[in-house]
């Protein structure tokens, strides 16, 4: 949280500091919209902070200050980020941007005149994958796993913890550590800043930061010989080819896909062929009933539910 407070304009930072501790802990997003009230998402619900008699309105100077601090006063250093539409800051938090988009030859060149900022607070839940581990590890290797969930259900958090578990190993469950490759297209899994992961990921993790998934998976297989390969948010045609290639090269894969249910996710044209070929050994379905990270169920290759260690666990 300190890393986030460090980039916020002072007035906003002070308002947030006034929140009670347990609510501060639960902030998921801080949203800036110029000349609109400051919005916080706490526990999945929007909340507007009061300053004086009305809600705190974001002034243009607040935006300028935020951008200055994000870029350390050097806009040119954010060129690549302004093209992608988000900035990863220390601590692995991400700041999404919206505004006027400048295009060149049909490609996005940069976002200028930024009107909205969305600061997504990243929280690592070490141990959130513990209960799933014995379902996802079998006969001395990790199983090809697909994690399905809607936005904000904790897919990436779970994936990150699986990556950590795979790289660190698990002595109590007799799992040795493996070489883990992460293709982190959106800098969300490892949250790298200048190539250094901001999350605890164990000792044996190699991260290709901000690399397109399909290409990144091939690069990893060719040069880094991972035992477990981790990617986020698959869904495009070219991803599927790379996944097939990787699985046939004997690399175990863990990945996430957007979907409100397993059925729905498997209907997606890019995922359907993979499921048909029974390439995934395990499916993990997440729902957002109450807290993010609630496991709805774990399914085997034929999509039959597997018994959980305990009743549907909250991560």
């Amino acid at each position: 949280m300190e890393q986030v407070l460090a980039v916020l304009p002072e007035a906003v930072g002070e308002l947030i500091m006034q929140l009670p501790e347990e609510r501060k802990e639960r902030i998921e997003e801080i949203r800036f919209r110029l000349l609109k009230p400051l919005e916080l998402i706490i526990n999945g619900r929007p909340e507007f902070l009061l300053a004086g008699d009305g809600p705190y309105i974001i002034q243009p100077e607040d935006g300028v200050q935020l951008l200055n601090k994000l870029s350390r006063y050097s806009l040119y250093a954010l060129e690549e980020e302004l093209k992608r539409g988000y900035i990863t800051i220390k601590g692995g938090h991400r700041v999404g941007l919206a505004g006027k988009v400048i295009t060149e030859k049909g490609e996005v060149k940069a976002i200028r005149d930024i009107g909205s900022y969305n600061i997504r607070i990243a929280r690592q839940k070490i141990g959130s994958a513990d209960r799933l581990v014995s379902r996802l590890y079998e006969d001395g290797h990790w199983l090809n796993t697909l994690i399905v969930g809607a936005p904000q259900t904790g897919k990436t958090t779970l994936l990150r913890d699986l990556a950590r578990t795979a790289s660190a190993g698990c002595r109590t469950k007799n799992i040795p550590s493996s070489k883990v490759g992460i293709v982190d297209e959106r800098s969300e899994i490892a949250g790298s800043v200048k190539g250094i992961p901001q999350f605890v990921l164990g000792e044996r993790v190699d991260v290709l930061d901000a690399c397109p998934k399909a290409e990144g998976m091939m690069m990893m297989i060719r040069s880094m010989s991972p035992e477990v390969l981790i990617v986020d948010e698959i869904g495009r045609k070219e991803d599927v080819d790379a996944i097939l290639e990787a699985m046939n090269a004997g690399v175990q894969m863990m990945m996430t896909v957007h979907g409100y249910s397993l059925e729905e996710a498997l209907r997606r044209p890019a995922i359907f062929p993979l499921a048909e070929m029974k390439l995934f050994d395990r499916y993990v379905e997440l729902t957002r009933t109450g807290r993010p990270g609630t496991v709805q169920g774990v399914y085997d290759r034929d999509r039959k539910p597997l018994p959980m260690e305990k009743r549907s666990s909250s991560l």
Binding site: S71, R72, Y73, S74, Y76, A77, E79, E80
Partner: peptide, 12 residues
């Protein structure tokens, strides 16, 4: 520093 390093000004 700016063109090739993309180094923020304070560091540069």
């Amino acid at each position: 520093e700016i063109m090739y390093g993309l180094i923020p000004l304070d560091e540069a």
